[in-house]
Amino acid sequence: MKKQIMAIKLKIKYYLPFDHLMGKTEIVEFERSAKLRDVLELLTKKYKGFAQSNTLDHIVILLNGKYCKIDWPVNDGDQISVLIPLVGG
């Protein structure tokens, strides 16, 4: 009997300059045990330009609106936002 893999769906939102490369949003699927690290690995493989800045220190990744760590688990329906680091005032 074929093993059924439980999938989760994540929504990823890209902001400038990443959206030039990756579009505005995409839905990706992962196994239930996936972590944020897995998402970044997928994006690095999928998008050549993204690989140059694929650590959390070089980009801002928000998981459901919060700063996050690379070993955080991701869950079905989570939203991940990819932005360039900025400060303001």
């Binding site: 220190d57 932005l83 360039i84 900025l86």
Partner: peptide, 23 residues
């Protein structure tokens, strides 16, 4: 430093989507 690039490209107003996404 990569953080400098964003400021140069979009200025401090580039912070808007980050703050908004974070509510």
């Amino acid at each position: 430093f990569p953080g400098r690039k964003g400021l140069s490209l979009y200025g401090t107003a580039g912070l808007v989507p980050i703050r908004n996404e974070m509510h």
